[in-house]
């Protein structure tokens, strides 16, 4: 049985290859950060003697969960996140022994509303309109009622008379949280629904905010759990549909998408950097301090990531759509000192 011998010897070879310790940085987390992280990883591999880091995606929450699994070579070194780490997650990390976490904010990303290039123009969006269109309950004649609007023009005559169809990121995405806070809650307050919720909940602000985050469940608001390409596919099949995208994704698909203004401002890296465009969020990655010195190239990767030549206004990340952080120097000093989460609070 020569074939048997062959397979057995291959098996023996495969098992006998006890390689040295892991020498590449292992990264997991936000799919929004993934393109940036892969650009940095590629440049890092090109310009240094370290191997190219491995970058996985899967969402901010999933990434931070894996980050908090514990210490050691079989856990990830860095978690990418499109939102700040939650206290709950810091606690979960600490319970698993991951106590010293370095938080690195490397820039900002705009969240844009976009529709089919050949479809109707959405040029009059206010956060209130998004809330009226997609919120679970809306204010009608001073009363909080279930959302029954069917067309955008039902509540804002400046908007086209098109069927409401919103494609928003699912709850496992960090983008969802920004969408809730910067769009739904703002719109909720502007329409007065927040006050109504507040009265309903006996003045409990947290509960009122939470109620504002509810989206309608009659099929007009669709959660997209996949990537932006899935949202793009949904938009492609619905001329009136409006989707939530990252600025960088939109900028790479200007041949298929048309961007909507929010409060009259068109999203660009400039309007986001000045804060004129209201919906943006900081992007982070989190580093395990205990892995620095154990995994070769970990600190160098973190420093490389936030170097002026990479994350600065002229760097490749800005070219892809990142809004450079004006306080980048502060972050550079923070990483150089390996300042952890607790120490700078």
């Amino acid at each position: 049985m020569s074939l048997m011998k062959l397979t057995v010897s291959v098996a023996a070879l495969a098992v006998a290859t006890s390689a040295q310790a892991r020498d590449n940085v292992q990264v997991a987390g936000s799919s929004t950060v993934l393109p940036y992280a892969s650009i940095v990883a590629e440049a890092f591999g090109e310009n240094t003697d370290f191997p190219t880091p491995v970058v996985e995606s899967g969402g901010s929450s999933a990434g931070l969960k894996r980050f908090c699994e514990g210490l050691g070579e079989n856990t990830v070194d860095i978690a990418n996140s499109s939102r700040k780490i939650r206290d709950k997650e810091v606690k979960a990390c600490a319970e698993a022994g991951v106590t010293d976490i370095i938080e690195v904010r490397f820039g900002y990303d705009g969240i844009v509303f976009a529709s089919q290039k050949t479809g109707p123009d959405y040029t009059a969006f206010e956060p209130a309109d998004i809330f009226n269109g997609l919120g679970a309950k809306v204010m009608v004649d001073g009363k909080l009622v279930d959302n029954t609007y069917t067309k955008w023009s039902d509540f804002n005559a400046a908007l086209p008379a098109e069927e409401i169809a919103g494609y928003i990121p699912g709850t496992k995405h960090g983008t969802r949280e920004v969408f809730e806070i910067k769009v739904l809650e703002v719109g909720c307050k502007a329409t007065g629904a927040y006050d109504a919720y507040l009265a309903e909940n006996g003045g409990d602000k947290k509960a009122a905010s939470k109620s504002c985050y509810g989206v309608r469940s009659d099929g007009r608001s669709v959660d997209i759990d996949g990537d932006y390409t899935e949202t793009l596919a949904r938009i492609a099949s619905n001329a009136a549909g409006v989707g939530v995208f990252g600025l960088s994704f939109y900028e790479n698909n200007t041949d298929k998408l048309k961007v909507a203004t929010v409060s009259g401002v068109e999203p660009t890296t400039d309007t986001i950097a000045t804060g004129e465009y209201p919906v943006s969020r900081p992007l982070y990655f989190y580093v395990k301090k205990a892995h620095i010195g154990v995994i070769p190239g970990l600190k160098e990767y973190a420093q490389f990531f936030i170097a002026e030549e990479i994350a600065g206004a002229e760097g490749p990340l800005a070219e892809y759509g990142l809004v450079a952080d004006p306080e980048l120097e502060k972050t550079q000093a923070l990483v150089a000192d390996e300042a952890t989460l607790g120490s700078n609070m």
Binding site: A14, N24, A28, L34, A41, P51, T52, V54, E56
Partner: peptide, 21 residues
């Protein structure tokens, strides 16, 4: 298990063939 990821590896040698990312 981390095999749906951004990976750039220069495969060299028989052992790294099985163990490199």
């Amino acid at each position: 298990i981390g095999m749906v990821a951004f990976v750039q590896t220069d495969i060299s040698g028989a052992t790294s063939f099985f163990t490199d990312p």
